[in-house]
Design a protein around this nucleic acid. Structure first.
Lengths: 341, 341
DNA sequence: GTTAGCACTCGACGAATCAGAGTGCTAACA
DNA sequence: TGTTAGCACTCTGATTCGTCGAGTGCTAAC
C-alpha cells in the first residue's frame, strides 16, 4: 500500500517542509533530494500519498504539505534520529550549575532551556508537594502567640507557615504536638493523609484546641501546595516560527497558556512511560489543532514526579525535540537529587 | 507663549490621539470637540504648536500626533483626573483575597492586576530580603550531618537552607551557634551585616569550623536573595495596543523584559517619592524611545520596599495608569502587612 | 512503469488608479 | 488684527490589473 519509494518521498517532503515551512513541489523536491526519479513520477506518487491521506493540498497548484496522518507516520517510523550533541549536553549542564540555586529554579530553568534549544514553547509541570512523603514537622517560636511551622518532605521541599497558638497553649505544647505528628505521619504520602492517621493524632494530643491547630497546619501544607506548579518558557522563541507571525495567533496561544487548569489537563492526558506525541488534529483542544505537543514524564527513584513538554507548530523538529526531552527527563532526576536529602 | 486656547487644543489633540491611536486632523477635531473655532483656526494653532515642539507631523498631510514634549506638558498639567472607581477598588480587593496565599503571590498578582486594568505591561519589583531586618535564625536537625537553617526577617520572609554540619560538630553546637548569631544580629538590616558583627560572632563561637558554617549560612541568606525579584504581567494585554501589532516589535520588548538587570536599572533610576513618568524620548534606553514608563514606589511603615511600574506606548492612558499606581502603592502596604508579624 | 510536454491555476508582486483626510496658503470678512 | 472660507496640493490606503513563477494534472510517447 505504501511502498518503500513512497516512504522515501514522504520523508523527503516532510523533512523539507519542516526546514523550509514552504509547501513542497515535485520539481524542487527532485532537485534537492536525489530520488532517482523525475518530477513527474514524484507528482504521481504525491497524488497517491494525498489520496491515502498523508499529504494535503491547500489548493490546486501549491505544493504539498504533510497532514497530521503524514506526520504521525513520520514520527512513528521515518524520523531521522538526532541525538543531543555533547556540546548541548555540556551547555545544559553548565546552565543548571550557573543558574539554579533553589528548587523552583530547577523547573523554571528547565523550561527556559528546552525552549531555547527547540525554539518552541515549553511547559514544565513540577511535582506536587502533596504527593511527596511527609518527613518531619518542627515549630519555631515567633512571639508569645505565634510560631512558624516548618514542614519538610522527601521530595526536597521545605514549606513554612505561620500559625497562631491557641490562647493558653505554651510553646512546649506545640513541641509535644510536633512529636506526635512526626511519629504518626512519618513517611506518609501527604496526599494520602486522612481520617485514621488524624484520629490517631487526636487521641494522642488529647487537647481539642491544640488538635485544631495541628489540623490547621497539616491542612495548610496540603492546601497551598495542592496545585502543581506550572513553568513556561519560550514565548519569544515561538515568535521565530513562521507560523506564528500573526499577533492574534500569538495572543491566542499565550492566553491559552495562562489557563493553568487547561494546560494541566492536557499534560495529564499524556502520562505514559516514554515520550508521547500528539499531532495537530489529534489534539482535543481546537485552539491547537495546528500544533503538536510532545510530552515526557520524569521520575526520581521510580516515582513519577512531573511532566515536561514542548508545544510548537505541527511543522516541528520532532527528532530534535524528542531526543532533547528524552535527555532532559533523565537529567532532571539528577538535578533534583541535589536538592534532596 | 502657549495661551489658554492652545492648551485646550493641545489637550483635545492628545486626548483624541490617546483614545484613537490615529493622527488627528483639524476638521475631525473641530467636529468632535466644541472648541468654538473653525478648522482653519485650529490648523493655525496646530502649526504654532508644532513650531513650539509639542506636536509632530509624520509627513505633510497626515494629522498631528503629540511629541514627547507634548505628552510631558499634558502629563504635567492638562491630564484629566481619572480616579480609580469604587468597583475597581473592590475588584482589586477581591482579587487579592481570592488569589493570594503566599507572599510571592502578592507581587505576581499585583503585576497581573495592573496590566489587566491598564492593558499594558506591568513590572513589580519585590522587596529585597537583604534589606529586611534580621529577626531570628533557627536550626532544625535533618540527619546526623545536616540541618535546615531557617532565617526569618521582619519583612515577613522566611528562608530556609540546608547546611552541612562540620564533622565532629553536634547539633547542640548548632543550637549554641544560633543563640550567638541571634544575639548579635537581631534587628540588623541584613545587607548591613558586615565585619564587626561577624567578628563578634567569631569571638563568641570560638570554634573555627563552626564559625565557617555560620558564615556560610549568613552568606547564603544574603546571597540567594540579594537579587530583587521581578514580576512581570501583561504580555498579552500589550498585544491589544495598536502600536504593538508587529511580531518583531513584541519580541523585542519581551526580550528586553527578560533582561532582569536592565529592567532593574531602569526602575532604580526612578526612586522618588511620588509617581514618576518617563516619556518616549526621555527614556535612556533606545529600545523604548517610543514607550513611556510610569513608576511608583511602595512603602511599609515608612520603609521603601519596592517599585511598581507600567510600561506602554507613549500613547498611554496616563490618567488612568497614574491613579491606579497611586492607589496600588498604598494598597500594597496593607496586603503585605497580612504576611507580617 | 516512467517521463516529457503542455495547458491551466494560484499566489505574490508591482504599477496604476482613486477616494479620503489633511495641510498650507491666500484672500475675504468682522 | 484675528478668524474663516476656499482651493490646490499631498500622502495613505484600498483596489484593480497584469505578469511571473512554481506547481499540478493529464496525455501521449518511451
Amino acid at each position: 500500500m505504501i511502498d518503500e519509494r513512497k516512504q522515501r518521498i514522504l520523508q523527503a517532503i516532510i523533512d523539507d517542509y519542516i526546514s523550509s515551512a514552504e509547501p513542497v513541489g515535485s520539481r524542487t523536491l527532485a532537485r534537492k533530494h536525489d530520488l532517482g526519479v523525475s518530477p513527474a513520477t514524484i507528482r504521481n506518487e504525491m497524488a497517491d500519498l494525498e489520496m491515502l491521506g498523508y499529504l494535503e493540498h491547500i489548493h490546486t497548484s501549491s505544493g504539498r504539505i504533510p497532514s497530521s496522518k503524514g506526520y504521525r507516520f513520520y514520527v512513528d517510523g521515518l524520523i531521522p534520529p538526532k541525538p543531543v550533541s555533547d556540546e548541548e549536553k555540556s551547555l545544559i549542564d553548565r546552565w543548571y550549575k550557573a543558574r539554579v540555586k533553589r528548587i523552583d529554579e530547577v523547573f523554571q530553568e528547565t523550561a527556559r532551556l528546552i525552549s531555547q534549544v527547540t525554539k518552541n514553547v515549553s511547559i514544565v509541570l513540577a511535582p506536587q508537594v502533596s504527593q511527596a512523603a511527609f518527613r518531619c514537622l518542627q515549630f519555631l517560636p515567633l512571639d508569645d502567640h505565634r510560631a512558624i511551622a516548618v514542614i519538610m518532605t522527601d521530595a526536597g521541599f521545605v514549606e513554612n507557615k505561620i500559625v497562631e497558638m491557641p490562647s493558653g497553649a505554651a510553646f512546649e505544647d506545640f513541641q509535644r504536638m510536633a512529636g506526635v505528628i512526626n511519629r504518626s505521619l512519618a513517611g506518609r504520602i501527604l496526599r494520602s493523609i486522612q481520617g485514621t492517621a488524624m484520629k490517631q493524632i487526636r487521641d494522642e494530643i488529647q487537647d481539642e484546641s491544640l488538635y485544631e491547630s495541628a489540623l490547621e497546619v497539616i491542612r495548610r501544607a496540603l492546601d497551598s501546595e495542592k496545585r502543581e506548579r506550572l513553568y513556561l518558557g519560550g514565548a519569544t522563541h515561538m515568535m521565530e516560527q513562521p507560523e506564528f507571525q500573526d499577533v492574534d495567533r500569538i495572543k491566542d496561544i499565550l492566553l491559552m497558556l495562562e489557563e493553568e487548569e487547561l494546560i494541566k489537563d492536557i499534560l495529564h492526558a499524556h502520562r505514559g512511560e516514554g515520550l508521547e506525541v500528539s499531532i495537530g488534529q489529534e489534539n482535543e483542544n481546537s485552539r491547537i489543532k495546528d500544533c503538536s505537543i510532545i510530552t515526557a514524564t520524569y521520575h526520581l527513584d521510580g516515582e513519577l514526579l512531573g511532566t515536561i513538554a514542548v508545544l510548537g507548530p505541527t511543522r516541528m523538529e520532532y527528532g530534535k525535540a524528542m531526543s532533547l526531552l528524552e535527555y532532559m527527563n533523565t537529567n532532571l532526576a539528577n538535578v533534583i537529587r541535589r536538592f534532596h536529602w
